[in-house]
Every structure is written in structure tokens, then in C-alpha cells.
């Protein structure tokens, strides 16, 4: 009985002589790469834009409440807090 690995070795020796199919993929690869950066950048761009918008809104509210003593941004909070003491 021949060791199966011997079969594998013999088959591999014969198989190595096979000529692999040739093809040309350069155009397809370039096309895929042209689309790739956008695909990669899109989720990050959306996340960065949303975070930026949120930060800008928070900054505007802070500046507004600091500059106008009439607009007491924390007033409502202190009112609720003092009511809860009773």
C-alpha cells in the first residue's frame, strides 16, 4: 500500500507542469481602486460631519448662554432641583 502523501507528491509534480490561465485585470483593478477611497471614506465622513455639527451646536449654545444673562440656560434645571427638595 502506497502512502497517500506519496500520491499527493506525484500528483503535485505532474500538476506543477500545468499552465495557469492568463488574464488582464489592470483596468478592472484601477476601476475598483477609483471607487474604493470613497467607499472607505464615506462612513468616516458621515461620522465626522455629525460630530462636528453636534459640537458646533453645543458651542453656540454655551456662548449664547454666557453672553446673555437674561437667557438663563440652567434656570429650568435649578427650578426642578429645588422643587425636588420638598
Amino acid at each position: 500500500m502506497i502512502d497517500p502523501l506519496e500520491h499527493v507528491r506525484e500528483l503535485a509534480t505532474r500538476a506543477r507542469q500545468e499552465e495557469a490561465p492568463r488574464g488582464h485585470v489592470s483596468q478592472k483593478v484601477i476601476l475598483r481602486l477609483r471607487r474604493q477611497p470613497f467607499a472607505l471614506a464615506r462612513p468616516l465622513t458621515v461620522f465626522a460631519t455629525l460630530t462636528g455639527l453636534l459640537a458646533a451646536t453645543a458651542l453656540l449654545l454655551t456662548v449664547y448662554s454666557m453672553n446673555s444673562p437674561a437667557a438663563d440656560a440652567l434656570g429650568a434645571f435649578f427650578q426642578v432641583a429645588s422643587l425636588s427638595n420638598f
Partner: peptide, 22 residues
């Protein structure tokens, strides 16, 4: 099933046999 007479196989047949086995 090990093929009868590996040396008589064409290179493509041998490659397919090996591919199927592995």
C-alpha cells in the same frame, strides 16, 4: 480514489485530482 497511473494523467487532470483531494 487514487487515479490509475498518475504518470499517464495530463497536468490539468493531475491538478484537478489534487485540488479535489485537498
Amino acid at each position: 480514489t487514487p487515479p490509475a497511473g498518475i504518470r499517464q494523467l495530463s497536468a490539468t487532470e493531475a491538478a484537478e485530482q489534487l485540488f479535489g483531494l485537498l
